[in-house]
């Protein structure tokens, strides 16, 4: 009997604290949910118009079809995968014939100053106009120059883009 009492005395406050914080978190989640969705959507929309400027987009299953003047130009899609540290998420624009129009890194957590260069135009511009099979580092037999000191990050983003581009190509064929 004594031990039951002791357990109750210990557990009731902990349970109460958990209930109160659960309720507080529900409220703050509801308060911020709309804004967070908006922020995420704005990020996606912003990067869509970077990879296909001036196009309008129709959402398909897991990619967007890019239309210019009512004609389908190509596809835009998000490619995601592990980098050197954390996930690299990038928007890719691809013409119907399998040539990349542009890529734009949405988020990444690479080493500041080294790996983060994968998000900079000097690196990402290399993808524009390349065919899927050439999206490999030069040392892996492709046409992409890796960043000095950040080979792993460079290879990661290159592989992520190519793998996803191949998938979308197969889906749309």
């Amino acid at each position: 009997m004594e031990s039951v009492k002791r357990i109750v005395r210990i557990s009731i406050p902990l349970i109460l604290i958990c209930i109160v914080s659960g309720a507080t978190l529900t409220v703050s989640n509801d308060m911020t949910k709309g804004r967070i969705e908006e922020v995420e959507e704005r990020k996606i929309n912003g990067s869509l118009s970077i990879v296909f400027p001036g196009a309008s987009f129709n959402k398909m299953d897991d990619y967007y079809s890019a239309m210019i003047n009512g004609e389908e130009m190509g596809y835009a899609f998000v490619a995601e995968g592990s980098g050197y540290s954390g996930t690299i998420k990038t928007m890719v624009g691809m013409y119907q014939n399998g040539t990349i129009s542009r890529i734009h890194v949405i988020s990444q957590l690479e080493t500041p100053g080294l790996g983060t260069q994968i998000a900079e135009p000097d690196f990402t511009n290399q993808f524009s106009g390349k065919r899927i099979e050439d999206i490999r580092l030069r040392r892996d037999g492709g046409l992409i120059d890796s960043i000095t000191g950040a080979t792993i990050s460079s290879r990661a983003i290159t592989e992520i883009v190519r793998t996803r581009a191949e998938e979308v190509m197969n889906e749309t064929r």
């Binding site: 914080s21 507080t24 703050s28 989640n29 911020t32 804004r35 967070i36 908006e38 922020v39």
Partner: peptide, 14 residues
């Protein structure tokens, strides 16, 4: 952890 999650949510939104 509750306070941290609140900070995380509001920073993400604002």
């Amino acid at each position: 952890a509750s306070f941290v999650t609140i900070v995380d949510l509001f920073m993400h939104g604002y």
